[in-house]
Amino acid sequence: MTLKGTPGEAPQGTPGSQLGQHYDAKGSLLARLERAFVEAGCDPDHLSHDEMAGIDQLHLGGRAASRRLMALAGWDAGQSTETEQISDKREGSPLDAFAGAGTGSSGAARLLDLGCGTGGASRLLARELGYEVVGVDITPGFIEVATWLSRACGLEDTTRFVCADAAELPLGDASVEAVWCQHALLNMPDLAAVLSECRRVLAPGGRLLLHEVVRGDNPAPLSLPVPWARTPEHSRLLSLKDLEQHLLAAGFQRQALEDVSAEALAWRSHHRRREQGGADRRAHGGSNTDQAQPPRQEGGESSPQASGPAARPPIRPRLPGPALIFGEVFVEMGRNLLDNLSDDRVRVVQGVWQHHPLPRT
């Protein structure tokens, strides 16, 4: 795919256009979210990380899961370099191709966020680890939103986003230290091509960090829709064994792996109760409002507040959440995902794989 330097449009009939219809079924995602923040009493041009938490990271576990993957890789806040031999002034550096996509430095991108969605992980990595991150997603609406959210929280100089196919990355060879990917491989039809591209853009010894949904041991069909698919043909789930075989064939050797299904199930159960409460209010003629929400803590949780009449805040709309992206069907998606996790039809894993040269044939 040719990089235009601005959010592109996926041709109709391509996997990108089909995913765009799934993740932005109503269209005008950016306008809807901006309007929702205004209705919630926020300035859409100046948002805190907690205000955007509900739409920031669209994967199981939210920011806590992202931080757990960072820890699994041995990354601590403030430490961002693995392969310092990559020059910030490399000729033809990946960010050179992003001219016009936003302001910022012209140094080499250190990390690729593959299937970045609305860019939450990119911002977390830039803010807490000091990385310069390029986010790639095939859904144009996500790229527009990711660019806006980074600008709104002051991270436009260290995060860039482009609409592109993961099987045809618009980055130079050996141009990034690591590839980060959360809940994205499950939508990619040609995994071999995607992993080949990951290997190409990684510097020698670079690492691939994955947080993925995989098939469980229960062979029963998935309950659909789920957040990544409304129909079976859009779900590309593999078993963990098959995924690892693909990784090994592409030249990636496992460094660390953990099953986080129990944590994902607990997180989804908690959010399912909150989502169902909102759906029940709407079904009985209520609106998407509540007592003014206390500031959300990291991961989208609300902080405790004082009780009693004197401490009761005024009523105002809730901050935007995933239902504004997926539509009313999101409540059903969440319920089905919970059922699939509970029945071991799906599992959730996190792991780190290192790039090693493939043997010559």
Rank of each mutant, 00 (worst) to 15 (best):
G16L: 10
L19H: 09
D24M: 12
L30A: 11
L47Q: 08
E51Y: 07
M52L: 13
L58E: 08
H59I: 02
A64H: 11
G78M: 06
I86E: 07
D88H: 14
G104H: 11
A108K: 00
A109Q: 07
T118G: 09
S122E: 06
V134F: 00
I138S: 00
P140C: 12
I143E: 05
T147I: 02
W148H: 15
A152W: 08
C153L: 10
L155D: 11
T159P: 00
V179A: 06
N187H: 09
L191S: 01
A192H: 09
L195P: 09
V201M: 02
V201Q: 07
G206T: 07
S223I: 08
W228Y: 06
T231G: 03
H234D: 12
G251M: 04
Q253H: 13
R254V: 10
L257Y: 05
L257F: 03
A264V: 04
R268L: 11
H270M: 15
E275R: 05
Q276S: 01
R281Y: 01
G285S: 06
S287C: 00
P295M: 03
R296L: 13
E298H: 05
P304S: 08
G308T: 04
P313K: 15
P314A: 14
R318L: 13
L324A: 07
V329F: 04
S342T: 15
D344V: 04
Q350L: 04
G351S: 08
G351H: 04
